[in-house]
Write a protein that binds this DNA or RNA. Structure first.
Lengths: 217, 217, 217, 217
DNA sequence: TATGAATGAGACTTCATTCAT
DNA sequence: GATGAATGAAGTCTCATTCAT
């Protein structure tokens, strides 16, 4: 009747459960979409009773948010934005870094096409807040690149006449064909991807490099 | 024996009603998404009873298909693919045409941002068939451009060393930054759009034009 | 503007239309049941617009009533109750008549199994009034037979010790095996039917005939 | 890692709920027919929310099947077919058993007229599978009786000249008048029922017993 | 008179969420 | 803490019926 208090609840358990549920939901949302997924399915995939889900999330939409966080996190891990932040020493150096990022991204997405669908489709469809966050992410990537370009202009190895912001936008878009492939084809062959990237890099170089004529000025 | 014939059914009313319902659904799907739209809402917006909707569509999904057709039709009207099909006479000529298309498109989309959401998001989310058709449309644009590039190579005013297919893909992607703007900003200022397009055109020119060195060969 | 009055409406046309609709409904009700039949189907089968049906029937249920009338009428025509009403002259005479009726009935039903379904199933399921009328019909048949038996007792060629009413009931039931066959088998072979009837007749004769021992009394 | 097990699901609750719902549905289907009964009504009668019904049945038709099972089970309990299977020792013995069954059946049905309606009408109207099962049940009864008759022929106390199968069919039908009464009258007085059965038995005896003339052969 | 366009009541069914155990 | 039983709001779709032409 007066039971001794058990151990206090493990503080980390909530975190663990949320992660467990989020990962299960990630896979199912990606496979069949948010609307067509039931709490029951998520719970079963997580090895839990479906009532338990509500101990860790207040609503289904909250799971989507969590899945989105998880997705963004994986994405950021995959593309490694940091190298881009370090000051580059030359155009080649910068382009190498951009190219690595542009290569990492579709490669990662090719391995995990569900993530594209989740980030691009589900987040847009279901929730305006998620869309804003996605926008923020894209802005971050663009402005990081823009800053690098501006640095390059200051250092003299990026053509001075370009608008860094606009070119950053445009350069980002050069990774899009690969992305589209990923979205529409189940399987992108790495060789094809490489060709797309080479073209993108060539374009970028010819757009950014200081032309001999300009050098003389 | 044969009963007197009543007035024949109004010809074209089915067409009219389908259009009426499709347009109403177009606006609502775009505003709140396919899943979150009820037949009742569509019917009310069309000024009809919800039962009437089912006289002209067999199922909700059929309305989405119709909306998709409608959207594609408007899109195709806006971008006018035909000029691209006519043989170009020079790189300038071709780029002019591409640029016009690349300008028409985001301009149109800026005026009708719902259409982007519908075509890119809803159709993708809800229906595999629509996704295939969307893919087909994109393929059409790319291969049209690729053919124009190949023609240019044959005529000597496009650099011979490039792969038309890959460059077509890549060039198409240069219109993406504007598209992303449209998706994420409610309001793109035309001036900004023009700057994006100018950059894209410059990139394209530098990528495609026959270099003096090559000319000598 | 002041058109001359046309001919007054043909008085028989309503009758004709009702018959037309009833016959169409008869076939469809029998094939798929009352609940699963739509007014639209009936109208199409009758070669009419579905609105027209409501000029001749006030409600769907009214069509069922009409179909039921029609069915009963056909049934009565098929079994010819009249011979049973005429005074019989001997047991053989009576049994002949009964047997003919017992033969006519399942034969007819074999040709039109839909009618059985309609009368037995639909009428019971859909409407209490129809059930009462069906009961009345059965009562009529029983009491007609009972009267014939009583007449036979008076004339001395039916055993005096039996209760005409009860035996009439029981004799009627001897036609049931054939009826059950019709209900459950799509196709009753006439030979089988004849065997059933012969057994019924034999039973009836042995039950009704005045036994030698009784005669002497 | 493995979450603590919660209390296991109440064992047998599904059985209990199915029974609860089935019994509620049994009464309502019988009273107003399958088509005119809503899930809401069934749920309310069972003291449940209508959503709960769908935890235990996947569709309305599945409830009908369950009700049918339930009805057949009660029917079989009431009529006790087993005695008929045991070898009879004489015609009297057999007829006693048949008569007992023929008496049990209408008596039971008189107490539960809904069951007749359900088994004969609703199940037939709504579902072909149920009709087949019903047919199988009838066949079982007939062939059980036919075997008993054949045994009697072998033992010499059933007239050799009859066809057991046909007579079994016919004898079964002798219970029909009582059944019809049950269908059409709310209240059959037991006295009347007894008279019907006596007549049936008399008919059966006169049909089956070995006649003195035959004995001599 | 005949028609079919329009309607809305109402059916079945799903599933996010609550809560007693 | 964990569970699954219970619920009812809400959605899609059908179709008998009305009525303007």
């Amino acid at each position: 009747m007066a039971p001794g208090r058990g151990r206090p609840p493990q503080p980390g358990i909530a975190q663990a459960r949320r992660a467990q549920i989020t990962e299960a939901a990630y896979a199912i949302f990606a496979a069949q979409g948010y609307e067509d997924t039931t709490i029951e399915e998520i719970a079963r995939a997580a090895g839990l009773g479906h009532g338990t889900v509500y101990r860790y999330f207040n609503a289904k939409a909250e799971i989507l948010h969590s899945v989105f966080d998880y997705s963004i996190e994986r994405l950021m891990t995959a593309i490694e934005l940091e190298p881009l932040c370090a000051p580059a020493e030359s155009l080649d150096d910068l382009l190498d870094r951009v190219q690595r990022m542009c290569k990492d991204l579709p490669e990662f997405l090719t391995r995990e096409p569900e993530l594209v669908k989740l980030i691009m489709v589900e987040s847009t469809a279901a929730d305006d807040e998620l869309l804003l966050r996605l926008r923020g992410l894209a802005d971050l990537m663009v402005s990081t690149l823009a800053r690098a370009l501006a640095d390059g202009q200051a250092a003299g190895w990026v053509r001075a006449s370009i608008d860094p912001q606009v070119y950053a936008h445009t350069l980002m878009s050069l990774s899009v064909p690969g992305l589209v492939h990923v979205l529409h084809e189940r399987q992108t062959r790495p060789a094809e991807l490489t060709r797309f990237l080479a073209v993108g890099a060539a374009l970028a170089r010819s757009a950014l490099e200081v032309r001999p004529a300009e050098k003389q000025l």
